[in-house]
């Protein structure tokens, strides 16, 4: 207090905002202190962690016969609109000199599919590839999300086989174990389970979309009311209800197999059963989860999400997308996954 009084009496008010702040900052220019919303820098330990994890995964993928690719950082926007509509809406877009729409890499899978279909489309046999890099998605209106995120992933291209489905799932779990996430588990589903039911219903597009979004909300009662409104037959309503609780071990596959009547759904369940039979010692890390639907209709076979009880958001996801390469002129089946490296790094 005395010191404060002295400041005042000496006519040097230390609370003068101008002098106070500039004395604190020195001559530093703060114009660039804030980044564009949704972005961040990595420095020192954070950058070193990323390098360590990247090197570790590179070694692992190489040892399993995967070759690295790095698709172009900028694509024609069409690559994303064909590959994944909801992602293309969030892409950072701009025009080239001929007024063509371009986009910053918003997702690896369509970019890799475009690259493989146009460069290695005629190569025989199975292509095993992996990638590591950043994707950019606009986050305006989304609270706290990052616009730039790091993904590492792998794809097996060229054969539609259950062995490849299993290889992909196991590789994803092995990658997470290598990164110290031994408690991570995988929730596996098959796009055909729900699609069999939806196709059998033959609803107009609007009603189909609303039904899908209600299934996604997981409100069993609202869904039941709506199905009644739409005149969905009780037998099909019952199937939807049974699926809504089908999350657990292989027993949920038996339960679903008992009620699902449509061929596509039956085949999808049988396929999941074969996956279960082939996963061996990884089985205790697997949950069969038939409660989710592929709202974007992006996957054609298995689809899976990786979770850890120690993290607030999924660690990665993947699945089979046999029609994606066809969109780029090469009809080759593919299965793969992406790890969301920022979720894995979070909390370290």
């Amino acid at each position: 207090m005395e010191w404060y009084a002295e400041q005042i009496s000496s006519q040097k008010p230390f609370l003068d905002p101008q002098e106070g702040l500039s004395a604190f900052r020195g001559t530093m220019d703060t114009t660039f202190a804030a980044l564009p919303p949704g972005f961040r820098d990595l420095a020192f330990d954070d950058a070193a962690s990323r390098r360590t994890m990247d090197t570790l995964l590179a070694g692992m993928f190489a040892a399993r016969g995967f070759r690295e690719v790095l698709p172009s950082g900028i694509e024609f926007l069409d690559v994303y609109t064909r590959g994944n509509q909801s992602i293309s809406e969030r892409a950072f877009k701009f025009l080239d000199r001929e007024d063509r729409l371009l986009a910053l890499r918003a997702d690896f899978t369509p970019a890799v599919a475009r690259m493989v279909a146009t460069r290695f489309g005629s190569e025989a046999g199975v292509l095993r590839i992996w990638y590591s890099g950043n994707v950019f998605r606009r986050v305006e209106g989304r609270n706290g999300g990052y616009a730039e995120s790091w993904q590492v992933g792998a794809e097996l291209i060229g054969q539609e086989s259950i062995e490849h489905d299993c290889e992909t799932i196991v590789l994803a779990l092995e990658s997470l174990s290598a990164l110290g996430m031994e408690s991570a588990g995988v929730h596996i589903n098959h796009a055909g389970v729900f699609r069999g039911i939806l196709n059998a219903l033959d609803l107009p597009d609007g009603a189909r979309d609303r039904l899908k979004s209600e299934i996604d909300h997981k409100d069993a009662r609202a869904l039941a009311n709506h199905m009644e409104e739409l005149g969905v037959p009780a037998t099909i309503g019952e199937q939807v209800h049974v699926l809504a609780r089908c999350i657990g071990g292989v027993e949920v596959l038996h339960e679903a197999a008992g009620v699902l009547r449509h061929e596509e759904s039956q085949n999808a369940i049988a396929h999941l059963q074969s996956v279960a039979d082939r996963l061996g010692s990884w089985r205790d890390r697997v949950t069969f989860d038939l409660t989710e639907i592929d709202e974007l209709e992006y996957y054609t076979g298995i689809m899976f999400t990786l979770f850890s009880p120690a993290r607030r958001s999924p660690l990665g996801m993947g699945g089979r997308y046999d029609s994606l390469l066809r969109a780029f002129g090469s009809d080759r089946p593919a299965v793969g996954f992406s790890l969301f490296m920022d979720s894995i790094l979070e909390g370290r």
């Binding site: 979770f307 958001s313 999924p314």
Partner: peptide, 10 residues
Amino acid sequence: VNRTAMKTRA
């Protein structure tokens, strides 16, 4: 319900 909690705290 949070989408991840629905799975990890089922």
